[in-house]
Simulated scan of single mutants.
Amino acid sequence: MPEARPVNDSLILEVANVETDVLTGIYSEETGRPQPLRISISAALKPQDRYTPDCPLTASKNYMDLKHAATEGLPQGVHFQLIESVADHICETLFLQDKRIERVTVKIVKLAISERGEEIGMTLTRHRRD
């Protein structure tokens, strides 16, 4: 009889290229008006042992929660000096929503400073700390 091996599955939920306007920036031409950002999110969720055809949504996470964290979940009227702060807020929002989320990666591209289609921005990966 074969020996049982530990399963090391992972489940990554993704929402890519969500475009939204956010109050962000440190330069005078950026402050006081929303800046267009392109946000992509990957969230590592502790997976179930199996996903059968009749699994309910509660076996995973609604992908729209990720999109919401990058759009309506950002506080209105708050100016984030750094896009790193925007990414931090998105990570913390998702960790608060679901204890099964183990890691979140947020990539943010500042669309207003792109001149020839390059992607200028940052990526933050945050692991659950508790």
Score class of each variant (00 low, 15 high):
residue 105 T to G: 12
residue 118 E to S: 10
residue 127 H to P: 05
residue 32 G to Y: 10
residue 64 M to D: 15
residue 107 K to T: 15
residue 26 I to A: 04
residue 59 A to L: 08
residue 41 I to Q: 04
residue 76 Q to V: 01
residue 69 A to D: 13
residue 41 I to L: 05
residue 130 D to Q: 08
residue 12 I to N: 06
residue 51 Y to A: 11
residue 115 E to W: 01
residue 90 I to S: 13
residue 75 P to C: 04
residue 76 Q to D: 13
residue 58 T to V: 02
residue 69 A to Y: 13
residue 12 I to V: 13
residue 2 P to C: 07
residue 101 I to M: 00
residue 68 H to S: 08
residue 65 D to W: 01
residue 90 I to E: 12
residue 7 V to C: 10
residue 5 R to W: 00
residue 39 I to R: 04
residue 99 K to C: 06
residue 27 Y to F: 11
residue 42 S to C: 13
residue 115 E to I: 05
residue 86 V to H: 11
residue 125 T to S: 11
residue 16 A to L: 09
residue 25 G to N: 07
residue 29 E to Q: 11
residue 100 R to A: 15
residue 119 E to S: 12
residue 129 R to A: 14
residue 83 I to C: 03
residue 2 P to Y: 08
residue 92 E to D: 13
residue 29 E to D: 12
residue 15 V to M: 09
residue 109 V to F: 03
residue 26 I to H: 00
residue 111 L to M: 13
residue 69 A to P: 14
residue 95 F to T: 02
residue 50 R to K: 01
residue 57 L to E: 15
residue 114 S to K: 02
residue 45 L to M: 14
residue 18 V to I: 15
residue 25 G to K: 08
residue 28 S to R: 06
residue 5 R to P: 05
residue 56 P to C: 02
residue 68 H to M: 14
residue 87 A to C: 04
residue 32 G to K: 10
residue 97 Q to P: 03
residue 24 T to D: 03
residue 87 A to H: 04
residue 44 A to Y: 10
residue 55 C to P: 06
residue 7 V to K: 10
residue 116 R to T: 11
residue 69 A to T: 09
residue 102 E to Y: 02
residue 79 H to C: 09
residue 58 T to K: 07
residue 42 S to A: 14
residue 115 E to G: 13
residue 61 K to I: 15
residue 119 E to K: 12
residue 86 V to C: 06
residue 3 E to S: 10
residue 83 I to P: 12
residue 1 M to Q: 12
residue 52 T to G: 03
residue 8 N to P: 03
residue 74 L to N: 06
residue 78 V to S: 10
residue 17 N to A: 13
residue 59 A to G: 12
residue 124 L to R: 11
residue 27 Y to I: 00
residue 119 E to N: 14
residue 69 A to I: 15
residue 1 M to H: 02
residue 78 V to T: 12
residue 6 P to M: 07
residue 71 T to D: 15
residue 108 I to R: 05
residue 67 K to R: 15
residue 127 H to S: 06
residue 110 K to G: 08
residue 68 H to P: 05
residue 75 P to W: 07
residue 102 E to D: 10
residue 23 L to I: 01
residue 30 E to R: 09
residue 3 E to K: 12
residue 59 A to D: 15
